[in-house]
């Protein structure tokens, strides 16, 4: 918190740093929302969906703004986004295969 506060006062006038601070504030807000959601009573699927969406937004914000990928050469996106998608897809299938696997009666 302290870090965020001092920045806002120190670095005024520099537009780029202002953007960084605004992004950080949003990240903080979303994190707060995440924690709140985790305490609210609601059906698990809805809760999981909400939490996943929020964390994807945070992920994208850090990658896009702090890591500058949004403004950088598109060539840089390819290897990273390939890695993210590949990891998501492959491991989902593996976990799915385990679910199928345990549902199969032993031969």
């Amino acid at each position: 918190m302290a870090a965020g506060g001092t920045t806002a006062t120190k670095e005024h006038g520099h537009p780029k740093e202002k953007v960084y601070v605004v992004v950080a504030l949003w990240l903080a807000l979303i994190t707060g929302a995440e924690i709140t959601i985790s305490y609210i009573k609601m059906p698990d699927p809805a809760k999981i969906a909400a939490l996943l969406i929020l964390s994807i937004i945070k992920f994208a914000a850090v990658v896009g703004y702090f890591m500058h990928l949004k403004f950088d050469n598109p060539v840089l996106r390819k290897p990273f986004i390939t890695g993210v998608i590949l990891a998501g897809a492959l491991y989902t299938i593996v976990l799915l295969a385990f679910t199928l696997h345990s549902n199969t009666p032993p031969r």
Binding site: M1, A3, G4, T7, E11, H14, K16, E17, Y20, V21, V23, A24, L27, A28, T31, I35, S38, Y39, K58, V62, Y65, F66
Partner: peptide, 28 residues
């Protein structure tokens, strides 16, 4: 202990902010 981990997660999140500010500083 979710509150505790939330705080340390927040600390790490804010370290990303200080990191970009360091970059902005050296670029200046």
């Amino acid at each position: 202990d979710i509150p505790f981990t939330s705080v340390s997660s927040f600390v790490l999140l804010m370290s990303s902010l200080t990191m970009v500010l360091a970059l902005a500083a050296i670029q200046r």
